[in-house]
C-alpha cells in the first residue's frame, strides 16, 4: 500500500478550442500528493484548475499527460478500483431533486454494492449526522441550498470511501453550517483515517481545516506545506497601508521603496502592502515618510504573515484581486 493516498505527477489538461475560445490549458504540469489520513486543501482563485484536478483524480475526466495514483490505483489503468475507493462531491449539487434525501443515499449505497438493509441503515446514520434526520423523506427539491450541500457530502460518504474529494464543499453554507462541516471533516480524518482532498476559495477554511495546503495558480502548484510552515516561510511582518487616494503615478511606492528594511511592496488600488523586517520600527518610518509628502492615510496595520501574504508571495497578486480578475 502506498503511503500516499493521492499521488499526481505532472498532470496536463488542455480543453479544446470552442467556437469563441482558444484552446485552454487548465492544468500545466500539476504535481500534488496527499498522505493517508491527511486533509489537503487545494486553494486557488476561479479558473485556477482546482475542479479540473479533482475531476481527473476521480476518473471523471482524463489528463492529456501525467499520471495519478489514488488509493494505490492508477486512474487510467484501474479506474474501477479507484471509483470503489473514493467519494466525490462535485462543485455542483449532485443529488437527484425528484428523489428524497433517503432515496438518494440508499441508491448511492446500492450502486456501491451495499445491500438494501445496509444502505438504509447507513443512509439514516448519515442523515442524522448531518442534521437532516427529520428531512430524510422529503424530496430534495424542497431542501434549502445548505441542506442540499450537506446531503451532497453525505452522498460522498455512504460507502465509507478511503479518499474523499470535496469540491468547494462549504460554498453557500452559513457560518454555523460551515463550522459543523469542518468539524465533521476533521473528525473523520482523525478518527476514521479518511484522506480528504478539498478545494476552496476561502483562506480561512484552508487555514482552519487543512493539515496540508497546496496553492494552485494557472494550473500549477505554486506553494505547498502546512499552513503554519507556509506562513513561517515568510520572514518579518506584513504592513498594510490604506490610502485615501489611489497611488496612480506610483510615487508612493517609490517613496516607501527608499526606506530601509521594507520591500516586496505591492500596490492594489488604495491599498499598499509591504514586507518589513520589524513591524514595530517600520510603522513610524512609513507614517513619517507619508506625512512628509502630505499623502493622506486612512489606516496602517501590521500583522504576522497570513495565508493571503503567502498567496501574494507566490502568485504576485493578493487572493482578493486574483478572485476579482478571474
Amino acid at each position: 500500500m502506498a503511503t500516499h493516498a493521492v499521488e499526481a505527477v505532472d498532470l496536463v489538461k488542455t480543453y479544446p478550442a470552442g467556437r469563441k475560445n482558444p484552446p485552454l490549458r487548465a492544468l500545466d504540469g500539476l504535481t500534488v500528493s496527499v498522505g493517508e489520513g491527511v486533509v489537503l486543501g487545494l486553494l486557488g482563485p476561479n479558473g485556477a484548475g482546482k475542479s479540473t484536478t479533482v475531476k481527473i483524480l476521480t476518473t471523471l475526466s482524463r489528463a492529456d499527460s501525467g499520471s495519478a495514483l489514488v488509493a494505490g490505483y492508477d486512474v487510467n489503468r484501474a479506474p474501477d478500483q479507484v471509483r470503489r475507493s473514493i467519494g466525490y462531491v462535485p462543485q455542483k449539487s449532485s443529488s437527484d431533486p425528484m428523489a428524497t434525501g433517503l432515496e438518494n443515499l440508499v441508491l448511492s449505497g446500492r450502486i456501491f454494492g451495499l445491500s438494501r438493509q445496509e444502505s438504509l441503515q447507513r443512509a439514516r446514520e448519515l442523515l442524522e449526522r448531518f442534521g437532516l434526520g427529520e428531512h430524510g423523506s422529503r424530496p430534495v427539491k424542497t431542501y434549502s441550498g445548505g441542506m442540499q450541500r450537506k446531503l451532497d457530502v453525505a452522498l460522498g460518504l455512504v460507502h465509507r470511501p478511503k479518499v474523499l474529494f470535496l469540491d468547494e464543499p462549504t460554498t453557500g453554507l452559513d457560518p454555523e453550517a460551515r463550522a459543523d462541516l469542518w468539524n465533521e471533516v476533521v473528525r473523520m480524518s482523525g478518527q476514521e483515517g479518511l484522506t480528504v482532498l478539498l478545494t476552496t476559495h476561502y483562506l480561512e477554511e484552508a487555514d482552519r481545516l487543512a493539515g496540508q495546503l497546496a496553492i494552485v495558480d494557472h494550473g500549477r502548484i505554486v506553494a505547498e506545506g502546512t499552513p503554519e510552515a507556509l506562513k513561517a516561510s515568510l520572514r518579518g511582518d506584513s504592513v498594510h497601508v490604506e490610502l485615501v487616494d489611489p497611488d496612480i503615478d506610483g510615487s508612493v511606492r517609490v517613496l516607501l521603496g527608499q526606506l530601509a528594511g521594507i520591500d516586496e511592496i505591492v500596490v492594489e488600488g488604495n491599498t499598499l502592502r509591504a514586507r518589513v523586517d520589524r513591524g514595530a520600527t517600520a510603522v513610524p518610518a512609513v507614517l513619517g515618510a507619508l506625512e512628509d509628502m502630505a499623502i493622506p492615510v486612512v489606516a496602517v496595520t501590521v500583522s504576522r504573515p497570513s495565508l493571503d501574504d503567502v498567496y501574494l508571495q507566490h502568485t504576485g497578486r493578493s487572493f482578493r484581486v486574483a478572485e476579482e480578475a478571474a
Partner: peptide, 16 residues
C-alpha cells in the same frame, strides 16, 4: 438535467 446538476458527474465517478 443530471448534467446541469452534478448528478451525472457523481454517477460517472462511481462504479455504476
Amino acid at each position: 438535467q443530471d448534467m446541469e446538476r452534478g448528478v451525472m458527474d457523481r454517477m460517472l465517478a462511481s462504479p455504476v
